[in-house]
Design a protein around this nucleic acid. Structure first.
Length: 898
RNA sequence: GCGAGGGUGGCGGAAUUGGUAGACGCGCUGGACUUAGGAUCCAGUGGCACGUCCAUGCGGGUUCGAGUCCCGCCCCUCGCACCA
């Protein structure tokens, strides 16, 4: 028990003796011991302390689906390493965890297993919490939340009512995405390629009434924010959000229907092509479509076409390869510029939800319109002349210029990421004044050019033309410049049980009435009979369903829809700042201290789901004065997937590795180390059992070398400044300690490259084995020598403790420290000590490496040049030829050009 | 089609500003210790025609020097895509 009786040993050591006094690395008892210590001492409890710089580190909280998988281990291990590092760097770190505990799987599992969703959920939470603790994750467990508890979801309801007060909540009947297998409506963001994001089933259109949040009101600010986040968030995520918001500039123009009062409003990004509009197309669902055909010989054909179009599923209807089908309504509209009548059609590819649900068709300058015109024999009219030269690689008609904010955004992001780019060379000349031939063209000319056959606008270029036409439309009152978004409002109604009840009451007299704040929470009854498909079981619980109207007191009934679970996750990071507050969703002073999240870590699958919703909530909160910062997540890291045998781990592929098994066999430290070492966080990680063994081997190796030095080092003093009297081996040891420290520090701090940081520690351990050879060969060691060795062991221990905290703490306490490693300030490396006394210089002849020489560190350029030319090997290579030039890169290389 | 990211040994991956390509780990080869080793330690390990050689997807270019910069291709992954 050599290190058990040291006077400085921490109080815990007397309570809990070191797991084993031998050199055997007994990870099992050692990990259990430290986990118990952290738990008892609440080691990672975060306390608001305005005198310290805060650091809010957050990983996306998990859905309690059963047991944790490797993806979780990776996500939370990355976060934990960073949390531990930041604490040692002197930050006041908030590192919380909780459970995204509402959702369909609980309900489905409950039906299957004849249990209750609550029971299933809390069972899973228990299991997963224990698994997290076994991994040694440094959470402030006092802040743990579960969104399915009324203490949490009452604030969902509170926010919903606040949003309602501000006009951000409304109810409407519309065509929604219905997932038959989940028996619920989905928001647009939750439909991926026409399929449900959770169960992968095809989504069907359905007419339904439901609750919506006006995220579209924030479209512009959400897009603007993407610009600000450039550099701090992965470019890909910002691009995806930009695409999703889909802002485009253009104009809305009214087309009068010939012989009546009807007006069809269209949206176009190309008002400069208005003169070329030779027909217009309405969405089948457009109210005018059937109206115009009514009472005409076309009525039957149009009605049938509309019916068929609506039956067609959305993917085939809107995919590029999908067949463009249309029907003539029999009516004509007046082109407001030319005054000419143009036929009004309806077609499957025009969507009611986008723009105004009606388009003008300019076949000469839009590929889709051209295809349609050719198919149905409609006229084509050229109104844009290509410029005399076009940029290289972009033949006319190849790529439409998207008058879209996407392009602007990605350009802005690129500028942020790389700095301004240079312009390409000028384009090859193209014969000027070449006019397109309307009757011959098979490809629409979709790029900008000069307006022709456009009356007073002839000769104007794209941007100018669009502006002038816009101004003209406005002056005539027949249109206006307009901005359109692809983003739709967020449908939050879910027709399922296991969620936050929508806090509204339906009254025959008063309509939908908000539940008064003082009556919150509207508690989800636990006695529901789950399993009846098609409607919420809440309807069958009279004590829930039947309530007096809060306004008039007459019998009314509660809303039975529950809120989308993404509502829970849109503000949980705020709740962590005051998790137990029962007066407000969070305390202002706490949220002001901790927010924004400094580093957020999670999967890319939430790029336009959770991450967009949360930004929306945050902006709305900001407008209500609840929070201060412009964005909730200052920096975002999207970690890669865990792959095995080339595919994502999944039950169906049978390639899952159970974290429990790895932790059981090798210990949490090994599991953590491997997962951080095998790949940089942003890249996919290929699982390797052999790699895990390698990491286990490394920890044992570190443990052994540490214990070989321990006895002599335990009582050594702090190393003093270097003196010339020490042996070169000691100086080299100190140099390597400080080099390792520098590399680990910088790899974590400025690059989040844990894999190279760990590689640096491994290299360092290898060099300690080299050093040991010399050390054991010495008769005795001076105090200064022992101090240097102590420093080396402390550096090893502290750097390792960030990644493998259990073994790190064990070693740290063995060194006799009263305080734990995680409470120890991260050491600073010494620039002076890093400087090598001798450096390696690479000698090149004509750019090829021919020799390597070792020279003293401070050698002058001329001396180095001379030494290089004198080198026998170099002389051989130069072979008497005249030396044309010598390039000297200080401290690196000399290149001799002959 | 558009946008982003990527292509480096047998494998996972390094190389931060144009300066020794392949750090670190896995695997493999040999040795030591051992009753034994799938433990541990030590040494070696890009390729071959073993050279003043060839090597970072392919072909050019800039440079004393290119995995890194420029031009043109090929392939892979992801996102967007009839969006008016």
């Amino acid at each position: 028990m050599a290190f058990n009786n040291h006077p400085l040993i921490s109080p815990l050591a007397t309570v809990m003796p070191p797991s084993n006094p031998t050199q055997f690395y007994d990870f099992k008892s050692l990990e259990a011991k430290w986990q118990e210590y952290w738990e008892k001492n609440k080691s990672f409890k975060a306390v608001e302390d305005r005198s310290k710089k805060k650091y809010y580190l957050l990983e996306m909280f998990p859905y309690p689906s059963g047991k944790i998988h490797m993806g979780h281990v990776r996500n939370y291990t990355i976060g934990d390493a960073l949390a531990r590092f930041k604490r040692m760097r002197g930050f006041n770190v908030l590192h919380p965890i909780g459970w995204d505990a509402f959702g369909l799987p609980a309900e489905n599992a409950a039906i299957q297993r004849k249990t209750h969703p609550a029971e299933w959920t809390f069972d899973n939470i228990r299991v997963m919490r224990a698994q997290f603790k076994k991994l040694g994750l440094s959470y402030d467990w006092d802040r743990e939340i579960a969104t399915c508890r009324p203490e949490y979801y009452r604030w969902n309801q509170w926010h919903f009512l606040k949003f309602h007060e501000r006009g951000l909540v409304y109810r409407k009947k519309s065509t929604v995405n219905w997932c038959e297998s989940c028996q619920t409506v989905l928001a647009n963001e939750q439909v991926i390629d026409g399929r449900c994001w959770r169960c992968d089933q095809l989504v069907l259109p359905q007419e339904r009434e439901g609750w919506f949040l006006k995220i579209t009101e924030y479209a512009d600010r959400l897009l603007e924010g993407c610009r600000e986040l450039a550099g701090a968030w992965p470019e890909q995520v910002l691009t995806m959000q930009g695409n999703w918001i889909g802002k485009s500039h253009g104009a809305e123009v009214d087309f009068r229907v010939q012989g009546g009062d009807d007006v069809a409003r269209i949206f176009t990004t190309r008002p400069d092509t208005l003169y070329g509009a030779t027909f217009m197309v309405l969405a089948p669902e457009h109210p005018l479509t059937l109206k115009l055909a009514r009472g005409t010989p076309r009525e039957k054909a149009v009605a049938e076409f509309v019916r068929n179009a609506q039956l067609e599923d959305k993917i085939s209807r809107t995919s590029e390869g999908g067949e463009k089908k249309g029907a003539f309504t029999g009516a004509y509209a007046i082109n407001p510029m030319t005054g000419e009548p143009i036929p009004i059609w309806t077609a499957n590819f025009v969507l009611l939800e986008y723009g105004t649900g009606a388009i003008m068709s300019v076949p000469a300058h839009d590929q889709r319109d051209l295809d349609f015109a050719r198919k149905y024999g409609l006229p084509v009219k050229v109104v844009i002349r290509p410029p005399a030269s076009v940029p290289p690689g972009r033949p006319p008609g190849a790529t439409p210029p998207r008058a879209c904010a996407e392009a602007e955004l990605s350009a802005a992001i690129r500028r942020r990421h790389r700095g301004p780019s240079e312009f390409g060379q000028s384009a090859p000349a193209r014969p000027p004044d070449e006019e397109l031939d309307a009757s011959a063209m098979t490809e629409a000319y979709t790029q900008d050019g000069t307006m022709v056959h456009s009356g007073p606008f002839d000769g104007l270029s794209g941007d100018e033309g669009r502006r002038k036409v816009g101004e003209y439309l406005e002056s005539k009152g027949i249109g206006k410049r307009a901005v359109n978004y692809r983003l739709r409002d967020w449908g939050v109604s879910r027709q399922r049980y296991w969620g936050t009840p929508v806090p509204f009451v339906h009254c025959g007299a008063c309509g939908a009435v908000p539940v008064p704040y003082e009556q919150l929470p509207v508690t989800l009854p636990l006695n529901a009979r789950i399993g009846e498909k098609g409607q919420s079981p809440l309807k069958d619980i009279p004590e829930f369903y039947n309530v007096p109207c809060p306004r008039c007191g007459r019998p009314a009934h509660r809303e039975t829809d529950t809120l989308d679970t993404f509502v829970c996750s849109s503000w949980y990071f705020d709740r962590y700042t005051s998790p137990r507050d029962d007066q407000a969703p969070f305390k202002k002073e706490n949220v002001d201290y901790w927010m924004p999240v400094d580093q957020y870590i999670g999967g890319i699958e939430h790029a336009i789901l959770h991450l967009l919703y949360s930004r929306f909530f945050h902006l709305a909160f900001r407008d209500m004065g609840l929070v201060g910062p412009p964005e909730p997540f200052a920096r975002l890291l999207t970690q890669g997937m865990v792959i095995k045998d080339g595919a994502k781990m999944s039950k169906s592929k049978g390639n899952v590795v159970d974290p429990d098994e790895i932790v059981g066999r090798y210990g949490a430290d090994t599991a953590r180390l491997f997962i951080l070492f095998a790949a940089p966080p942003v890249k996919d990680l290929e699982w390797s059992d052999k790699g895990v063994e390698g990491c286990s081997r490394f920890l044992k190796r570190a443990w052994r070398i540490f214990h070989e030095f321990l006895d002599e080092v335990r009582s050594a003093p702090k190393p003093s400044a270097p003196t010339g009297a020490t042996a070169p081996e000691i100086r080299e040891l100190r140099r390597r300690s400080h080099v390792a420290l520098k590399r680990v520090t910088e790899d974590i701090e400025s690059r989040l490259q844990f894999n190279t940081a760990i590689a640096a520690i491994m290299e360092y351990v290898n060099s300690l084995y080299d050093f040991r050879e010399w050390w054991t060969g010495c008769q005795e060691h001076s105090e200064a020598d022992r101090a240097a060795a102590r420093e080396a062991m402390e550096t090893l221990t502290l750097t390792l403790s960030v990644f493998a905290p259990h073994i790190g703490e064990e070693m740290w306490s063995a060194l006799g420290h009263a305080e734990t490693a995680d409470k120890t300030p991260w050491p600073e490396y010494d620039r002076e000590l890093i400087r090598a006394e001798e450096i390696l210089i690479v000698l090149q002849v004509n750019g090829k490496v021919r020799q390597k020489i070792v020279v003293e560190e401070g050698i002058g350029e001329e001396d180095l040049k001379a030494r290089s030319l004198e080198d026998p090997k170099i002389k051989e290579w130069v072979a008497g030829k005249p030396v044309k030039k010598v390039v000297v890169v200080p401290k690196k290389l000399v290149n001799i050009v002959v």
